[in-house]
């Protein structure tokens, strides 16, 4: 059986994959800007223009004038006359479908296996066995526990239902009740955020997941956000206090520094231990993190974080008289 192997000429293959998407997309969206195609394909505009140039030379034997793709660029907009051969993109390849199915399984939810079946059906018939084999080779994480925070948020985004949350605002140090229309989840600076419209404040805002204290899915449904509404969220930023400083023993350092995250190593000692700084995390997070190394790590500062750590240690110790 032919298997996917190391790409010999990645350029040719990448280009073909792109144009097999690009042509049907341009047919469906007449006058689509070059910029949009470039964004969709994740390549520079120059690359798209080269692809279009390449497409001009593509035809169908016997290469009579009618056998060529009817394509032109006007200003910065692309037009492709309805092309009978490439009106839709090809089916999912086994790795495309398997990657998507693995992502869906990690997310969980009631529809997961329905989704996996549908993806399988969308792979060419004689590649489906490879799809299944490949899917068994990727485990992108256990889905969030049923009724967990992440599980509920995902469910609400999918069903377009509002969320009632109790949220801790770090800058004011207080909790408040909010009704949020959840738009999407985003990862920034090492944290997961819910990006959504806050009814009370009348605008879209980021909510850091670890600061959501309570969360319930409401009956109320909401209208999907417009492109422009979402665009405003691109550059949200958040004030964060001074970074938390931790001392990690050799074992803890070896584990921690291999994990993704925003570490700044301040100092390393000869035995392999380290002092690190982590920006934008709560005192609570720092305490839990340090304790998870079973005595091989401690919180050094700032003073509030050190205090939080010390109190947690003393309270935990009090449970072992």
């Amino acid at each position: 059986m032919t298997r996917k192997a190391a790409p010999v000429k990645a350029d040719a293959r990448d280009r073909l994959r792109r144009v097999l998407f690009l042509v049907p997309y341009a047919v469906r969206h007449p006058g689509v800007p070059v910029r949009e195609l470039a964004r969709k394909c994740g390549v520079p505009e120059k690359q798209i223009l080269e692809d279009l140039d390449f497409l001009l030379g593509v035809g169908c034997p016997p290469f009579a004038p009618d056998d060529f793709l009817d394509l032109y660029v006007e200003g910065d907009r692309v037009h492709v006359a309805l092309h009978q051969s490439f009106s839709r993109p090809p089916r999912f390849t086994e790795s495309e479908a398997a990657a998507l199915a693995a992502a869906a399984r990690a997310l969980g939810g009631e529809g997961t296996e329905r989704v996996v079946r549908a993806l399988r059906e969308a792979v060419p018939r004689d590649r489906r066995a490879i799809f299944e084999e490949l899917l068994a080779c990727i485990f992108a994480g256990s889905p969030p526990a049923k009724d967990s925070l992440l599980g509920r948020i995902e469910q609400a985004i999918a069903a377009r239902r509002a969320l009632r949350i109790r949220y801790f605002t770090a800058t004011r140090g207080e909790e408040s009740e909010r009704v949020v229309h959840p738009y999407t989840l985003a990862q920034r600076l090492g944290h997961w955020y819910l990006w959504g419209h806050d009814e009370g404040r009348g605008k879209a805002l980021p909510f850091r997941l670890d600061r959501i204290r309570e969360c319930a899915v409401d009956e109320k449904r909401f209208e999907p956000p417009t492109d422009a509404e979402l665009a405003r969220g691109r550059l949200f930023s958040e004030a964060s206090g001074p970074p938390v400083r931790l001392r990690l023993g050799p074992l803890a350092a070896a584990w921690a520094l291999a994990r993704p995250g925003q570490w700044r190593v301040v100092k390393r000692d000869r035995k392999g231990g380290a002092e690190v700084e982590v920006p934008g995390v709560s005192d609570e997070w720092a305490t839990r993190f340090a304790l998870s190394f079973g005595g091989d790590a401690e919180v050094l500062g700032p003073p509030s974080a050190r205090r939080h750590f010390g109190e947690a240690v003393r309270r935990a110790l009090a449970r072992y008289p």
Binding site: S87, R88, P89, P90, R91, F92, A99, L100, A102, A103, A104, A106, L107, G109, G111, T112, R114, V115, A118, L119, E121, A122, P124, R125, A140, E154, I157, A158, A159, R160, T184, L185, A186, Q187
Partner: peptide, 26 residues
């Protein structure tokens, strides 16, 4: 066997799929 078919999934399943894919890419 060539053209990508309609997945024929209910909207909430499709939304889940988009969310899963984008969270993975993120």
């Amino acid at each position: 066997d060539f053209y990508l078919p309609d997945l024929k999934l209910p909207p909430e399943d499709l939304a889940l799929l988009y969310l899963a894919g984008s969270a993975a890419l993120a």
